[in-house]
């Protein structure tokens, strides 16, 4: 059987040389879904050792390509060692932005949830998240920090929850006056918390508490 031995990081993740960060992230998750130990698609195909090495290669490829500095150094190395031609990297702007997002909607939710689980299992991230959640009130900024701790962007939350990107941004930016009625905000917060697999009851209560404190006057005006 062939392994990834002679493949460069782009080939390992099966992304083009000018892939954007979000594409690399998607490709990474797709690869994990195929090669992780629980995957049915590769059931019994590899020995534990082989699988470990494949996963390690995917991990290294992702780590490098998702970090701009490391990626540039890696690209330079590929060119310097003659593994690829410099032209390999200079096709920016020629590609279709929808090249990757068409066939993937089906399992979006599942992949995102696997990703969140994985992140939540990482001790440092777990700690950061718990520190934020331990506060009595949660501002939009803190929700944003939570989201970023998981490494998830707004379009990804939108893809799963169908909440518009604008609404999500307003929640995170504490633009309360532009938000819809509270019942909707509650639903938004619940969906948002569910994606991040955190206690939605707590998120709703503490965000609404913050909101009430931040704009007591407007509430009065309305009343």
């Amino acid at each position: 059987m062939k392994t990834f031995e002679n493949e460069n990081y782009y080939q390992i993740l099966q992304v083009p040389a000018n892939a954007r960060a979000d594409e690399i992230k998607h490709a990474y998750r797709d690869s994990l879904a195929i090669y992780e130990a629980e995957s049915v698609a590769t059931y019994s195909l590899f020995s534990d050792e082989q699988r470990e090495r494949l996963l390690q290669a995917i991990e290294t490829a992702f780590d490098t390509l998702v970090n701009e500095e490391k990626r540039n150094a890696y690209n330079q190395m590929l060119i310097d060692t003659g593994q690829v031609d410099a032209a390999f990297f200079s096709r920016q702007g020629q590609r279709k932005s929808d090249a990757y997002c068409d066939t993937r909607t089906l399992s979006n939710e599942k992949r995102l949830s696997q990703w969140v689980q994985k992140k939540a299992d990482t001790p440092e991230i777990r700690q950061r998240i718990e520190a934020i959640l331990s506060r009595e009130m949660l501002s939009g900024l803190e929700l944003k920090q939570l989201r970023e701790a998981y490494g998830i962007d707004i379009p990804e939350i939108h893809a799963v929850t169908k909440i518009s990107g604008d609404s999500l941004k307003r929640i995170e930016a504490n633009q309360f006056e532009d938000l819809p009625a509270e019942i909707y905000v509650r639903q938004f917060l619940k969906a948002y918390a569910d994606v991040l697999r955190i206690d939605s009851g707590h998120v709703i209560d503490s965000y609404l508490k913050f909101m009430a404190q931040a704009k007591p006057d407007t509430d009065h005006d309305r009343a």
Binding site: M1, K2, T3, A33, I34, S39, V40, A41, T42, L45, T103, L106, S107, K110
Partner: peptide
């Protein structure tokens, strides 16, 4: 069942067999 399973197996076979 995972709707993408067939495509995944196809990808795997194309990558690891000859």
């Amino acid at each position: 069942a995972d709707a993408g399973l067939g495509k995944k197996i196809e990808t795997v076979c194309n990558r690891h067999f000859y």
